[in-house]
């Protein structure tokens, strides 16, 4: 099995001296291609930092990170930007869409920025999968929270990236909308072979993944394959108990 992304001895340190905080402590991680990986952990465990470092949004303090076979450390801002544009898709918790652009324009934004023509057949597939055909001309302010996140998902997929990073994609949604978005992410893995990494603290969300990585105090402390919400919750409770 190949890796869509991997990191070795990934370390991220904020500040220096007395205020020095080690967010990631020599993390080794592999993200397998075509699978849905969830990263879980309590607040402050470093799960968002890990995602940002893997995605090339943040600079690392030590170690090495690859997306596909491109190593991120050493890339200039220009090349990093290009990599994010062409090889990475993002779904954030909020502020995912540009308010001045329509849903369709938001979906094709990374392609438009790159000056590339979208693959119309693929675009249609993505749009139909997220079920937004009749909402394409709407501005984000005219869409519900769930619809907005589905637009964000469609954008993340539109350029057929090597990997999609989703940062608490359902954090701001009611359970029904959240289930729709997660269902869609699951389908994109199953039907299109997309690689997805999702950061979440919701065991229910994690249960959609193929594999769950547990993070605590900047280290990967456990891993679970074929998770269910109950199993994940149990494991999380165990950590909490172990910590206190």
């Amino acid at each position: 099995m190949t890796n869509a992304a991997h990191a070795t001895a990934l370390t991220k340190v904020y500040g220096s001296g007395d205020t020095r905080v080690t967010a990631l402590d020599s993390v080794d991680v592999e993200i397998e291609t075509g699978r849905f990986t969830a990263i879980m952990g309590p607040s402050g465990s470093g799960k968002s930092t890990l995602m940002h470092c893997l995605a090339g949004l943040d600079f690392i303090s030590d170690g090495r990170v690859w997306i596909g076979d491109v190593e991120l450390s050493g890339l200039s801002d220009k090349n990093l930007t290009k990599l994010r544009r062409d090889a990475v898709g993002f779904v954030f918790q909020a502020f995912n869409l540009v308010p001045t652009l329509t849903a369709l324009e938001n979906i094709t934004l990374p392609l438009d920025i790159a000056g590339r023509k979208p693959d119309q057949a693929w675009l249609d597939t993505v749009i139909d999968t997220v079920g937004l055909r009749d909402r394409l001309k709407h501005r984000p302010s005219e869409l519900s929270g769930g619809q907005q996140q589905r637009v964000a998902c469609a954008r993340a997929l539109a350029s057929r990236p090597t990997i999609v990073f989703a940062d608490e994609p359902t954090g701001n949604l009611d359970s029904r909308s959240g289930a729709e978005v997660l269902g869609f992410l699951r389908r994109s893995v199953d039907e299109f072979g997309q690689t997805i990494v999702m950061v979440t603290h919701d065991p229910g969300a994690a249960s959609y993944a193929d594999r769950v990585l547990f993070l605590a105090d900047g280290r990967i402390v456990d891993e679970m394959h074929g998770p269910t919400a109950d199993l994940v919750l149990e494991r999380m409770k165990a950590f909490e108990a172990g910590r206190s």
Binding site: T81, F90, F92, F95, V98, I113, A114
Partner: peptide
């Protein structure tokens, strides 16, 4: 918004 644009690949 600018941050989002940068994240999804807009260059400086």
């Amino acid at each position: 918004e600018v941050g989002l644009l940068r994240a999804v690949g807009t260059s400086r």
